[in-house]
């Protein structure tokens, strides 16, 4: 038991996480590619036409996974923020800043694909209902986090400031999720939830879940890749960095 604990703390040091991330990211990237190929195949060639929305509904295969990821990544950032504040670990702040751009991207994609879906189906690119507004706020929270942390030169202080944004902002995530239940919104309710059976045909559901898994793997791969750059930037004066094979002439 104590042995395992020691191992965990070993990997929490940037010097040992840098090579670990380097070994892991290609596996996640490979998984993401395979899942994406399968997901796209189901999305376009297996999943049937929808009875109401025709072929237009196929936007769901990226809209819903992108929205899930935008919310989930923010929760992971809040988790790292809490770890960073509690244990004062260096790596947690680096993980948060490695995740933030990807989260912002998925929030943007959620809004973008939602607009392209809303125009033909609802008749409007954008409405100020609770679901759409709270997702837009999530996008601004990501931007605020990135702007704040990059404005502070001392990385440790930047991490602390960012952690506060991540922890305060995380209350927005359940607001997004439950907005369609709590208030009258134009956005429809959830098709997939833990409390009831999905209201989708099975092949459609599989397409969506596999695309979600692909986005998940992509996010892990890109975050591991980006955290390596962040580790090097911050640990540039450490001896272990100078001893890395890629640092030799």
């Amino acid at each position: 038991m104590s042995q395992r604990l020691i191992n965990w703390f070993k990997f929490a040091s940037p010097a040992s996480f840098y090579p670990l991330a380097g070994t892991l990211w290609p596996w996640f990237a490979g998984l993401a590619s395979v899942l994406c190929a399968v997901g796209l195949w189901i999305s376009f060639f297996v999943a049937p036409t929808d009875f109401q929305q025709g072929e237009g509904y196929r936007i769901i295969f990226i809209h819903v996974p992108a929205s899930w990821m935008s919310m989930f990544i923010y929760c992971v950032m809040a988790f790292w923020a809490a770890i960073g504040i509690t244990f004062n670990t260096r790596l947690s702040g680096m993980m948060s800043s490695a995740l933030a751009p990807t989260g912002a991207l998925f929030a943007f994609l959620s809004l973008w694909t939602g607009a392209l879906w809303g125009k033909p189906m609802w008749g409007a690119w954008w409405v100020w209902d609770a679901r759409l507004t709270s997702e837009l706020i999530l996008f601004f929270l990501y931007i605020g986090y990135i702007a704040l942390t990059s404005a502070i030169d001392d990385p440790r202080r930047a991490d602390k400031a960012g952690a506060i944004v991540a922890l305060v902002g995380v209350i927005n995530v359940p607001i997004i999720y439950f907005s369609v239940k709590w208030w009258n919104t134009l956005h429809q309710g959830a098709s997939v939830s833990m409390t009831k059976a999905p209201t989708m045909a099975t092949t459609m559901l599989w397409g969506m879940l596999i695309m979600a898994l692909a986005f998940w793997m992509y996010s892990i791969a890109i975050a591991l890749y980006r955290v390596r750059a962040i580790i090097l930037e911050r640990e540039r004066h450490a001896t272990w960095v100078a001893e890395l094979p890629e640092m030799q002439r």
């Binding site: 049937p48 036409t49 929808d50 009875f51 109401q52 929305q53 509904y57 769901i60 189906m121 609802w122 008749g123 409007a124 409405v127 134009l186 429809q188 309710g189 959830a190 098709s191 209201t199 989708m200 045909a201 459609m204």
Partner: peptide, 17 residues
């Protein structure tokens, strides 16, 4: 002055409907 369609969360092929 503006009419928007509100669709539900059900997705299925026409035969199932």
């Amino acid at each position: 002055s503006e009419v928007l369609a509100k669709h539900d969360e059900n997705y299925m092929p026409p035969e199932a409907q």
